[in-house]
Design a protein around this nucleic acid. Structure first.
Lengths: 198, 198
DNA sequence: TGTCCTTAGGACCAAGTAGTCCTATTCTTC
DNA sequence: GAAGAATAGGACTACTTGGTCCTAAGGACA
């Protein structure tokens, strides 16, 4: 029952990642997902817009599955988790050959511009990542320099990852993400108290 | 003669920043620019697409030049120029009230997805900034820590600024860019040799 | 066997849009 | 004052697209 639904979601995700949401027609999705026609599609989704919402939500879920698992991994030191998280974003991007999506992508930008609902959803994704990381940093605040603001640092991390992703996609060069990740980890390390850092 | 053309370009830029390229109709542009009708518009532009190209090109020029002008400002110390550049990106975003406008905004992303030429154009802006910054850092390499890689650091700076811009736009909160900018400048300062930094 | 969900397929509508064409009037400029 | 460009305005075409509606066949399950 949900099987076909997921097929549709996947087909749509691919098409959108490729051509953007606006340039993906319902008929495209129907063809790609192997549906019989409009009625078949509308049997599963109320509208194209709701499809878009679900695609975004699903994309976030996929990323969240990986990302949040890392950020909550109890066997790792909090700061180490942040590092592994950074690497995982890079890895995910590399593995998808630069054509990712998710909030750390461009599809989001396009969708946000055309629909306020989408924008809000994406803003929420940014926030949840930021808060998750900030929470983690807050846990180890005693290990950080006194003037370190966990929230601000978290925002910085998220912003940089997002920027690196976009840059990599535009330049068609995933490799540069590694360099950015290296510096980003160093940036985080720079907030660790000197007395503890060695 | 070019006056009206510019009016049209400006009107289109505003509309596109607001609703995206696809959702901006030629009639919208006509209304906003105060033209008499289709014929009036097509008197100046060959097609909607060519209008899009020109709008984008114009924005890029303004932005790229603005950035490069700062990075090449001879009266400032190289490292100071980088700081001013960072601030200027923030200022630009703030001044436009978080509304699109950046080269990595809605239009650029949307167009990049559907047109290879646009993508290349965006990549070029990234590259010119990155190279300019890297060159600047290279000039003062003797003032920097030995393990500092100018190119990598330059990429980091550009990526972070881009990410912060996108995040600010999504969250409709320009203020968070200030925090990112502050941290970014501090990070750059952190690469200056200890013996020189005081 | 009967019921309900799924798949099929197509007709159709309403709306919006890019772009063409045609005719006039006004404004510049030589 | 004549020529050409700019402005005005509207009719009209061709096409795409989201979405509705209707009918009917196949499958699952009780």
């Amino acid at each position: 029952m949900t099987q076909k639904r997921i097929q549709i979601l996947d087909a749509a995700a691919e098409l959108i990642a490729d051509k953007g949401f606006v340039h993906t027609s319902v008929d495209d999705v129907i063809a790609r997902a192997g549906l019989s026609g409009k009625s078949h599609f509308y049997h599963y989704f109320k509208s194209k817009e709701s499809l878009g919402h679900e695609v975004l939500a699903r994309q976030f879920d996929v990323l969240a599955e990986r990302g949040l698992a890392i950020l909550r991994e109890p066997t790792l030191e909090p700061l180490e988790r942040v590092n592994v998280f950074i690497d995982s974003v890079v890895a995910l991007q590399a593995e998808r050959g630069g054509r990712s999506s998710s909030p750390f992508g461009a599809l989001a930008t396009e969708m946000a511009a055309m629909d306020e609902g989408f924008r809000v959803r994406i803003a929420r994704v940014f926030r949840s990542w930021t808060e998750e990381i900030a929470g983690l940093l807050g846990q180890v605040k005693d290990q950080l320099e006194e003037d370190t603001d966990p929230l601000r640092l978290a925002r910085f991390i998220v912003a940089t990852l997002e920027g690196a992703t976009t840059m990599a996609r535009m330049k068609r060069d995933v490799s540069l993400m590694h360099g950015v990740a290296t510096d980003l980890k160093r940036f985080v390390a720079g907030h660790v108290r000197r007395s503890l850092s060695t």
